[in-house]
Every structure is written in structure tokens, then in C-alpha cells.
Write a protein that binds this DNA or RNA. Structure first.
Length: 504
RNA sequence: GGCCCGUUCGUCUAGGGGUUAGGACACGUCCCUUUCACGGAUGAAACACGGGUUCGAUUCCCGUACGGGCUACCA
């Protein structure tokens, strides 16, 4: 019988969750959603040295903003497997129990080596030109552990409270194979796997032990994680095996990485030319915050859409998908094996697509706070009309200001290029006639402005529209001019034109 | 260095033994627009290389190159 689908996103709270992490969470979410399963947030805080204040809260908020909230786990309600923080689970003795079981079975051992001794070993191996210096079946014979020390000494060390770690006893030469849902069969010889530390000297489990114990106890059906875990997967297989749980272990899926746009390496927060965090992140150890997608004006739906299409696609030509649609379509069989470079330009395009799906009313309300910040307040009808006219030009809501501020502020300069090219000796007289026509319009609408203007053109000959636009708005481009003038109003439009004429 | 994973236009990708190798972003041109944008049309642009297997390989196999990941009492 197939297990109920239960997947987890298991970040460590060592900083802000970046977009690569969000994508891992997203794929977990989509898979759970598709199969009517559970999506769990587990916090892997077993490294006390790397704990960062605020990181956990950030992760929770980021998942919420993205609309991919787990239905179980830290911040999302306890299920029957609480607690979901590994530091708290450690207090319950959960991990020690499994480590002891491994020791009893002869598949793990105590190691008493100090970090200095380990350093020495590595140096020695490097000097001897050993290609892969590691604590393994060969080198452990020269180290201080329960495999080399007399039994009495080990007992004494343990009884006197000597510091120790528990290491996995990896066989010297054994083929380990596992079937990854995304990559197919992967085969590694155990000679490449080191005797991983399972329990640290502070009593905390390492990732290797902790995630396995928790995945088993939490009945996880699929372990979906980044490709960076692929090299340690063989060790994980061994742990499951020695625990007698190989048949109960979750199916493995290693996701391809998201790479920097300019080629080198997985995406990093230092890449300052585009946001890497979903929400702005202030690292307590750093002075300047990292700007997030939310604060940059991205819709969460757009952000999630972009991420979903990095390393996966449904096989059609469509690109715009809601989270619900993504969940219906998603399958690991269509996830790529190779990493994808993130394209910030295309990300903007995605946002534009979502912006266009908004009604003029929604856009108006979204823009209102920005406008207020700039010191202007307008009624709803005005803002709706404004957004309707300007929206074709923007990718982000805040750009309504950049592309339409002249509606609210009369120009004090006039586009130089247009003026030098088009303003001449006859211009002033001509536009004075235009001004007279405008002054005499009683019913000020786009249509009447257009009609009366056309009548003047019939008498006076061609009048340059772009020049007129610059005189009224100051800038060379924008939405349909008469529409804009109708919005700006007769009084203001006339005033702007006469001001311009008096200045020039 | 060692091990592992990967490689279709600049980027995201579809496809897959016989195709004019398709779409999207970005870019060029044209149309629409008395502007810019939107929209429409159109163009340039890819199967990393070398060997096999095959009547035929971009597709399958093997090498090489290149890229990435890992190589901690970090995750």
C-alpha cells in the first residue's frame, strides 16, 4: 500500500530563506497539494553556533507571503509529531536513542579525537598525498575511538564524562545504490563515504542523523531537497539500512540548483543586482538589509510562478500559472536534472503579466499608498482612470508614479530633446492659438478636446502633438494625450500651457 | 586534487532515432499609435566536442571538454 504523502521543508535558521530555499519549499508544497498530503515545516536548529535570531520567524513569514504555507509544523500548528524543532526533540532524547541503537548493532562507534587531532590527521594525509583525506575505515584505525581503544579504556572515558562523538561505521568497500525520483539510479562506493559524525560532542545530532530520525518518526514519504545533498545520500542510505528502516525510508528527490544569472555558482545573497530574498532580510550580523521581492513590488503569485518554472515545466507552451494550477500539473518526473540560471529580466515580465490581471480598481487601491507618500490624495474615480491610462507602461505598481507623476505635478522643465528639435519661431504663436481653443471648451472631455483641436488643425495646419505633450506634461512620452488632459482637468491643463508659453 | 551530478538559441525551456529543432524573456525590423508603451507581424539566435551503435543520430552507448555540487563535531 502506498504511504500517505507527507513531505517536509526543513531549513536551518541560519539566515534569511533565499529563493532557492523557497523553490524547494514550493515543490514540496505542490507535491503535497497534488496528492492531498501533508506539508510540514521542521526547523533544523542543531547547530547552536550558526543560529541566527529572527531567521525562523522570517522563514514562516516568507512561506505565508508566498502562499505556500505548510499545514503542520513550527508556526503552522502542531500535529501529532510535535515538537518540530530539532533542538526541542533532542531534549526528548529522540536522537540519542537511535544513535545508541546503531552502536549496539555495531554500525557506529564512539570517537574521542579532539579537533586538533583531527586537524593533524588531515595534514598527515594531505602530506602523504592521499587523494581524499577523511575519517574512514582505514584512517580510523589510527585514531582514538571505541574501535581502537581497549574496552576498559572506552568505558572509563565514557564514565568520566570525556567528550566524544558518535560516528557511523562505514564499510571499507561496498557498493551503495539508491533510486532518486529525479535522477534515477545513483551508485557510489562506500570508500568515498566518510565515517560521518552522527552525534556531536554537545549531544546534538548532526543533520545526517537528525533528518533521518525525524523523517521516520514523522512518517515522511518523500524527502525533497537540494542537489547539494546528493553526495551525502549514500551515507543516509547506510543509516537507514543499519537502523533496519531501509524499506520504510522516504523516496529521495534531489532538486537541481538555482544558479546565478552570470553563470558561476548557486545563487547567493551577495549577488546584489537583483533580490534573492522573498522578503527584505536584515541579518543581525550585518549593517545593510537585503531587499526582498515583496518590497520590490513583486506579487507573490508572480514570484512563485517564476520559481516553479525554474527546473520544472508542464510541457506546454503556457507560462502563467496560479499555485492551484501548478499543484495540479506538478510532477517530479518533469523536474530537470540540471541547474537553472535565474533571469531577473524575465522575472519582471512575469510580474507585469500579473499586474495586468488586476482590475483598475485594484491597481488604484494598490497605488494609493505610494501616492500618499508623495503627498497627494485623489478620489477613487480619478485613480481608477489614472491607472487605466498608465498601466500599459508599468511592470510594478510603484512605477505608476515614475510614469505618471506629471499628472499630479506641473512640469518645471520641458524635455530638451523634443524642444530643441521641434520648438521654432512659429511655435509660440501657434500654441497660443491652441491655448485659446482650450480656454473656450466648456465641456472638457477627451472627445471635445480632440474635436476642437482637429478643427484648429484644419485652419492652422499641422500641429505637433509631441510638442503639445511636452508643454503640458514636460515629458516626451505617455498615454493618449487628450485622455491625460481630460484627467488633469481644464483649469490645470490651460494653466500649464499658458505657463509654458510665458516661459518660452 | 578526489568523488558525484549535469550539458538544446545569451537566458528559461519543448522535443526526441528520420522535425523547416517549437515556445517564452531579452534583442533587431515593420505595422498600429501625430509620442512612449501595449498589441500584432517578422528576423537573428541552439542540440559542447570526438568516437561508436544504426540505413539514419541532437536523441542511445563510451570517452573528452566544460559547468555545478560535495569533500566540517554546517546544514
Amino acid at each position: 500500500m502506498e504511504k500517505r504523502v507527507r513531505v517536509r521543508f526543513a531549513p536551518s535558521p541560519t539566515g534569511g530563506l533565499h529563493m532557492g530555499g523557497v523553490r524547494t519549499a514550493l515543490f514540496n508544497y505542490l507535491f503535497a497539494k497534488k496528492h492531498g498530503g501533508d506539508f510540514i515545516l521542521r526547523i533544523e536548529d542543531t547547530d547552536q553556533n550558526r543560529f541566527v535570531e529572527g531567521a525562523e520567524a522570517y522563514i514562516i513569514e516568507a512561506l505565508k507571503w508566498c502562499g505556500i504555507a505548510p499545514n503542520e509544523g513550527v508556526g503552522f500548528g502542531d500535529g501529532k509529531h510535535a515538537p518540530y524543532r530539532q533542538s526541542e526533540r533532542k531534549e526528548l532524547g529522540i536522537y540519542k536513542k537511535y544513535a545508541d541503537q546503531l552502536i549496539e548493532g555495531g554500525h557506529a562507534y564512539y570517537a574521542f579525537d579532539t579537533s586538533e587531532e583531527l586537524d593533524e590527521m588531515r595534514k598527515r594525509l594531505e602530506a602523504a598525498k592521499v587523494s581524499a583525506p577523511q575519517y574512514n575505515a582505514v584512517t580510523r584505525q589510527n585514531m582514538r575511538n571505541s574501535l581502537t581503544l581497549p574496552e576498559d579504556d572506552v568505558k572509563k572515558l565514557l564514565d568520566t564524562g570525556a567528550k566524544y562523538v558518535i560516528r557511523l561505521k562505514v564499510p571499507r568497500n561496498e557498493e551503495i545504490r539508491f533510486n532518486d525520483i529525479i535522477r534515477g539510479w545513483v551508485v557510489v562506493n562506500s570508500a568515498q563515504v566518510d565515517d560521518k559524525v552522527l552525534l556531536k560532542s554537545d549531544g546534538m545530532p548532526t543533520y545526517h542523523l537528525a533528518h533521518i530520525v525525524d523523517d521516520i518518526e514523522m512518517e515522511i514519504s518523500h524527502a525533497v531537497r537540494g542537489e547539494e545533498w546528493l553526495p551525502s545520500a549514500p551515507a543516509h542510505i547506510l543509516i537507514y539500512r543499519y537502523l533496519g528502516l531501509e524499506n520504510d525510508m522516504p523516496k529521495l528527490a534531489h532538486l537541481p540548483l538555482i544558479l546565478n544569472p552570470d553563470g558561476n555558482g548557486k545563487i547567493s545573497k551577495r549577488e546584489a543586482r537583483f533580490p534573492v530574498f522573498p522578503l527584505s532580510w536584515q541579518d543581525p550580523r550585518e549593517a545593510t538589509p537585503y531587499v526582498g521581492y515583496r518590497e520590490s513590488g513583486y506579487y507573490p503569485e508572480a514570484f512563485v510562478n517564476i520559481l516553479a518554472l525554474l527546473g520544472w515545466n508542464p510541457g506546454t507552451n503556457e507560462e502563467i500559472f496560479s499555485v492551484e494550477q501548478l499543484a495540479n500539473l506538478f510532477e517530479f518526473e518533469r523536474v530537470h536534472k540540471s541547474g537553472a540560471k535565474f533571469d531577473p529580466e524575465k522575472a519582471k515580465w512575469f510580474n507585469q503579466q500579473y499586474l495586468r490581471m488586476q482590475s483598475d480598481h485594484e491597481l488604484a487601491e494598490a497605488f494609493r499608498p505610494t501616492l500618499k507618500e508623495k503627498g497627494f490624495e485623489k478620489d477613487e474615480a480619478f485613480l481608477i482612470e489614472f491607472c487605466k491610462l498608465v498601466k500599459e507602461k508599468v511592470q510594478f505598481v510603484h512605477e505608476f508614479w515614475d510614469h505618471g507623476k506629471y499628472v499630479f505635478i506641473a512640469p518645471d522643465t520641458y524635455d530638451e530633446k523634443v524642444m530643441t528639435k521641434k520648438w521654432n519661431d512659429q511655435s509660440k504663436a501657434l500654441f497660443t492659438r491652441v491655448l485659446n481653443v482650450f480656454e473656450n471648451i466648456t465641456n472638457w472631455t477627451s472627445q471635445t478636446i480632440h474635436d476642437d483641436f482637429e478643427n484648429l488643425v484644419k485652419e492652422a495646419g499641422k500641429i505637433d502633438m509631441q510638442l503639445l505633450r511636452v508643454l503640458i506634461t514636460g515629458v516626451a512620452g505617455g498615454p493618449q494625450l487628450f485622455d491625460m488632459m481630460a484627467l488633469i482637468g481644464k483649469e490645470e491643463s490651460v494653466k500649464r500651457l499658458s505657463t509654458a508659453l510665458s516661459k518660452l
